[in-house]
């Protein structure tokens, strides 16, 4: 078959596309000449809603509007985790045990390859190794090659395995130690020499500011808005005309959160959907009777900026950046059941 006739067939089939099949699906079905499934969908019987007798009489005279759902695009805008997660007590203990085991099993540190003889660094090294007995800096005082090297497990209640104490040990090691009475070596203040890592808990965590993007750095945060009825949900809006879902998502982000957000819509496909029914309304534009709404959620990431609801056109009252657990408490049970499987664990 020539390409011209194939294109004509496609056009003809698009012209008769029912509203129950999405455009991309319809195109891929109609592309195949042997499509039995497409024919089945196209000729799907439309069972009319049962109603009172007077309505049935009217229905015989005028063509009945088709029953359909409103199609909405929603945006699941998220901020990925910014820092590594806290290790579990088991992981901390396991890693410390493996580090000490490694000290016992590996060859001794090649000291003269890294520290030249007769240098200031060598004097510093000597003093430090005398104190901690091992080249590893974060496993405490432990001599792996002595007769008591088997005693490599820490006792109950020891804080050595904890991340904070290991950071402290590394910071302490980074400061050059001074020999008593030796000239030319001055102990500098800690703050000058060693840059301390930023705290893992931020000010927004302490004050409980749920609008800040600077909170819960270990978790994925999701943007939810409070609509005019006081319900928390992802921002959403109707898909206009022949707009694609990912274009609609970009538009909704600007119209709800303002232009001060640098965002990226991940992919062209929705990652989840939510459906609910309401008392049916007639849509004269499409010639359909709408009995409910289907919201398809697009995945998006925020790179920079912050949401601002000042000029939003949807009547949203408030917004918050929530983690998965906080989201479960904020939204309704039905909404949570629809969205829970598209959220990240962490």
């Amino acid at each position: 078959m020539s390409s011209g006739s194939s294109g004509a067939r496609r056009l003809a089939s698009i012209a008769t596309r029912p509203d129950t099949v999405c455009r991309s699906c319809w195109q891929s079905i109609a592309r195949r000449p042997y499509s039995a499934a497409a024919a089945a969908v196209a000729e799907a019987p439309e069972t009319p809603e049962t109603s009172s007798n007077s309505n049935q009489k009217a229905a015989k005279d005028a063509p009945k509007p088709r029953i359909a759902y409103q199609i909405h695009a929603g945006v699941c805008l998220s901020r990925p985790p910014q820092i590594t997660r806290d290790l579990t007590p088991f992981e901390e203990s396991f890693f410390l045990y493996q580090k000490r085991l490694n000290e016992r099993l590996s060859l001794p540190f090649t000291r003269y390859f890294y520290i030249a003889k007769g240098t200031v660094a060598e004097a510093d090294w000597k003093r430090k190794i005398k104190a901690r007995l091992t080249p590893a800096r974060d496993i405490g005082v432990f001599n792996p090659f002595k007769k008591q090297g088997w005693n490599d497990e820490v006792l109950v209640g020891d804080t050595l395995r904890e991340q904070e104490s290991q950071v402290d040990a590394l910071l302490k090691d980074a400061i050059p130690s001074a020999a008593p009475g030796q000239e030319g070596m001055v102990v500098a203040k800690e703050d000058v020499l060693v840059e301390k890592p930023m705290p893992r808990v931020t000010e927004s965590d302490i004050t409980g500011d749920r609008r800040s993007l600077n909170r819960l750095l270990q978790r994925t945060l999701y943007l939810v808005v409070k609509n005019s009825q006081g319900k928390w949900l992802f921002p959403h809006d109707q898909v206009v005309g022949k707009e694609w879902l990912h274009n609609a998502a970009e538009r909704i982000l600007v119209q709800s959160g303002g232009p001060n957000m640098n965002t990226w819509v991940v992919g062209n496909h929705p990652i989840g959907w939510f459906r609910y029914n309401f008392t049916s309304i007639l849509n004269p534009d499409r010639g359909t009777e709408e009995i409910g709404r289907k919201v398809f959620f697009m995945k998006a990431r925020i790179m920079a900026g912050q949401a601002d609801l000042q000029n939003n056109i949807f009547g949203y009252q408030d917004f918050a950046w929530l983690s998965r657990e906080e989201l479960e408490e904020a939204v309704t049970k039905k909404y949570w059941d629809a969205i829970k499987n598209m959220l990240a664990d962490r």
Binding site: S24, I29, T84, H269
Partner: peptide, 28 residues
């Protein structure tokens, strides 16, 4: 537990899945 591994598991893997998804309509 390497940082890159954690980033892969929490962020990159799910993004790649969303990017690479191919939709096959019913009857395909």
């Amino acid at each position: 537990l390497p940082r890159l591994q954690q980033t892969y598991e929490s962020t990159i893997a799910s993004d790649i899945l969303a990017l690479q998804y191919t939709h096959y309509p019913p009857g395909y």
